[in-house]
Amino acid sequence: MHELGVVIDVVHTVEEFARKNGVTRIDTLVLQIGELSSMIPKYIEDCFPAAVDGTVMADTKLRIEVLPGNGLCGKCAKAFNILANEGACPACGGRDWEILSGKEFMIKEILAC
């Protein structure tokens, strides 16, 4: 369980961003989490209330967008979802691939005024 420490870090970053940009109220925070990241969206949601407690984000809603874990086959150059295909290229069966996306953990944007 490493989500809490990371979410507290996220809250600090967003607070800092809000301060610099003169934002007083943050309605929604949007995070992007890759399918291949070690961050589990459910755990992030669970610890979010604890991380924002007592901050300017206490009433902020959290929205998580999941980014697909896609790979590029090293043999036949087909792009495919690594998880859905259990790590094997659906075209040639190759297991030698490069990750195209899915490791991300990004603070995408905030809805604010």
Binding site: T13, V14, F17, R25, F105, M106, I107, E109, L111
Partner: peptide, 18 residues
């Protein structure tokens, strides 16, 4: 109701630690 605007941050969460 307040009008919300979208502010892009686009920052990797690991950036602070890095």
């Amino acid at each position: 109701m307040d009008a919300f605007k979208v502010l892009e941050i686009k920052k990797s969460v690991y950036e602070g630690n890095d």
